[in-house]
């Protein structure tokens, strides 16, 4: 029993510390009394960090009175979606966090629902994708990569931290297709996680790696990898040494967004409140602390813009997956 007490005490201490650190920045006008976050994955993952970071900033800035969190993993996120739909009537003040995989997984039929079955609130942050090679590689830019690829054919291996048909593979295929190559011919090597894939790149097992831009920056700054291209429309201030694909004549952009959804049938008034709280959050110091700590990029996409963005992404990814034979 002593052990559980310790744990509870620790968590209470953590909560107090967070509350205290936030108190300094308070003063914003409170929009919601309380907010509950449903997280479709386990503790410590990307969704978990997004929900808890957002909650921390919202309460710290005084926009929301208190925030609570619920991890609900299962079915690649499908379980949480089903929960939001089935319990729609009782889910006041509840937001579910999600990201690009909700689009991919509803296309492949991992779960029967799609973002259309939920109330869209807003996309709040994002990360671009990047293609990288080891710093000592002879490949200097995308033109060099394409030359090497044409010379080596299937011996040229491109790795990533997702399953075939998952995000890292789709980004690699998207870039190769935009560069005029056959996306099916790319020899994509899947790894279990980004870290493993990075080890595969540095050990020389694969020739290039498709990964998240923020992950790539950390290793590029240490002089371990070279970023050949980033899927942003323009160079990203956080690391402007990395060229975009666009400026190298490869017409492709991609954002791995993260955002929030409410239960179906949520009133317009309530959605407006959610959006107001999240929008006001961007200007607070509390958010800046959380954002900088996690290296997130602010990409604000509320309401109808969010719908248009998701529909466009669904069409683009769907077309590519059909080309690749995954649908």
């Amino acid at each position: 029993m002593k052990m559980t007490m310790t744990r509870r005490a620790v968590m209470a201490a953590a909560a107090t510390v967070i509350a205290l650190s936030g108190a300094g920045h308070a003063g914003g006008h409170q929009v919601l009394d309380q907010l509950h976050f449903v997280i479709p994955g386990g503790a410590g993952g990307g969704w978990d960090g997004t929900a808890r970071g957002t909650g921390e900033a919202l309460t710290g800035a005084g926009l929301v009175g208190s925030a609570s969190y619920e991890n609900m993993s299962g079915g690649g996120g499908g379980k949480a979606i089903a929960y939001m739909i089935e319990n729609a009537e009782s889910l006041d003040n509840t937001l579910m966090v999600n990201s690009t995989p909700i689009v991919i997984r509803s296309l492949t039929g991992v779960f029967p629902q799609s973002f259309r079955d939920l109330t869209l609130v807003a996309g709040t942050i994002g990360d671009y994708a990047a293609l990288v090679v080891p710093a000592d590689s002879s490949v200097a830019d995308m033109a060099g990569l394409l030359d090497a690829y044409r010379a080596q054919g299937p011996d040229f291996a491109v790795g990533g931290g997702s399953v075939p048909g998952g995000m890292d593979h789709l980004v690699a295929a998207m870039v190769m297709q935009a560069a005029g190559e056959d996306p099916i011919a790319v020899n994509y090597i899947p790894y279990d996680a980004g870290g493993e894939a990075m080890a595969g790149l540095l050990s020389g097992e694969i020739d290039a790696l498709s990964t998240g831009f923020s992950e790539a920056i950390a290793l590029a700054e240490q002089g371990e990898v070279r970023i050949l291209g980033v899927t942003a429309p323009e160079r990203v201030p956080a690391y402007d040494a990395a060229p975009t694909f666009m400026e190298q004549g490869i017409d492709t952009t991609f954002v791995n967004w993260r955002g929030f959804f409410a239960a179906p049938g949520t009133s317009d008034e309530k959605v407006a409140q959610y959006i107001a709280a999240l929008e006001a959050m961007y200007d607070t110091e509390a958010w800046e602390v959380v954002r900088a700590r996690n290296g997130w990029v602010n990409i604000w996409n509320p309401g109808d813009d969010f719908r248009a963005f998701l529909e466009a992404q669904e069409t683009e990814i769907g077309d590519l997956m059909r080309t690749l034979g995954f649908l």
């Binding site: 993993s73 299962g74 079915g75 690649g76 499908g78 379980k79 089903a82 492949t108 991992v110 779960f111 399953v163 075939p164 048909g165 998952g166 899947p190 790894y191 279990d192 995954f326």
Partner: peptide, 20 residues
Amino acid sequence: GEGALFNMPRFTLGMMDLQS
């Protein structure tokens, strides 16, 4: 469940809870 190599879940008997 869903492995690292295939984008389809295996042997889940259609149960969502076995997906991971």
